[in-house]
C-alpha cells in the first residue's frame, strides 16, 4: 500500500526520510532523467553511502538489482530491489554550478523564476545544510537512470550512453535501516543534450516486507548477505 506519492520537479533537490523497510520508488516522468542520490544513516549521519565499498564487495562497476548499497561501516543502508534498467551510474559524480555556467550561461531566480537552472551540487548542499550537514559530508552519488560505460582500454575511457532512460523507467530502493536520502533531479554533466532538459520524477513511498531468508539481495553474493546481516544484527 502506498503511503504517499510526491512529484519532484525537474532539476530540483529533495530530502526524504525513509524509514526501515519502506521502499522509495522513483519513476521518470520525462525522457533522459538523472537522479543523483546521497544517503546517510538517520541515526548517525557520520555513517554514509560508500560507493567503492558497495562496488568492490559486489564486484560491480555499476548499480543494478539486487545490489545492496553499503555504508562505510559495513552495513546495508538500502537495497536496489528492482529497476526497469540494468545500469545506474555511481562513478562519475554530479553537476556543479561551473558545469551549468559553462554550457548554458548564468541563470537566476530574478530572471527565470522557478525554472532557474540549479546544479545537482547546489541543490544537494542546500538540502544537506537543512540537516546540519555540508561539504564534508559529500560522497560519491548514486546516479540513477544514468549509464556511463568504461571502455576496456588501458585508460578506462568512459562513454556516456544517451537515451538510456525514458519516461516510465523506474528504480526502487528498500531502506534496510532508517535513512536520510538527499537527491537532485538535475541532469548529469556528461549528458550531451544541448538543451537544459531535466526530467520530472515521481517518488512513491510504501511499506514493504523485511527481506526474508531467500531475498534475492541476500542470496546475490555472500558479501551482500553479510552487509544485510550486519544491519539486522546492529538493530536486533
Amino acid at each position: 500500500m502506498t503511503a504517499y506519492a510526491h512529484d519532484i520537479a525537474a532539476g530540483a533537490a529533495w530530502t526524504v526520510r525513509l524509514n526501515r523497510h519502506r521502499a522509495l520508488r522513483l519513476t521518470c516522468l520525462d525522457d533522459g532523467a538523472n537522479v543523483s542520490v546521497l544517503m546517510f544513516a538517520a541515526a548517525d549521519p557520520l555513517e554514509r553511502l560508500n560507493v567503492p565499498d558497495t562496488l568492490k564487495a559486489q564486484m560491480s562497476a555499476c548499480l543494478r538489482p539486487p545490489l545492496v548499497l553499503m555504508s562505510d561501516m559495513g552495513r546495508a543502508l538500502a537495497t536496489l530491489t528492482g529497476s526497469s534498467l540494468d545500469w545506474h551510474d555511481a562513478v562519475t559524480g554530479h553537476s556543479t554550478d561551473a558545469h551549468l555556467d559553462a554550457r548554458w550561461g548564468p541563470s537566476d531566480y530574478a530572471a527565470d523564476r522557478n525554472a532557474w537552472r540549479r546544479s545537482a551540487r547546489a541543490g544537494l548542499l542546500d538540502e544537506l545544510a537543512k540537516h546540519g550537514l555540508g561539504r564534508r559530508d559529500l560522497h560519491a552519488t548514486a546516479n540513477l537512470f544514468t549509464k556511463v560505460v568504461p571502455d576496456g582500454d588501458e585508460r578506462g575511457t568512459l562513454a556516456f550512453v544517451p537515451g538510456h532512460a525514458s519516461a516510465g523507467d523506474w528504480a526502487e530502493l528498500r531502506a534496510e535501516q532508517d535513512l536520510l536520502v538527499v537527491l537532485s533531479s538535475a541532469p548529469h554533466p556528461l549528458d550531451p543534450n544541448p538543451a537544459w532538459a531535466p526530467a520530472r520524477i515521481r517518488a512513491t513511498v510504501a511499506a514493504v516486507p523485511a527481506p526474508g531468508p531467500d531475498d534475492p539481495a541476500r542470496l546475490f553474493r555472500a558479501e551482500s548477505g553479510r552487509a544485510l546481516a550486519a544491519t539486522e544484527r546492529s538493530l536486533a
Binding site: 567503492p52 564487495a57 562505510d72 558479501e223
Partner: peptide, 13 residues
C-alpha cells in the same frame, strides 16, 4: 575507485 580497506568492509568482503 576501490576505496580504502576498513575493518567493517573486510568483515563484509
Amino acid at each position: 575507485l576501490g576505496g580504502a580497506c576498513a575493518q567493517e568492509s573486510n568483515a563484509v568482503r
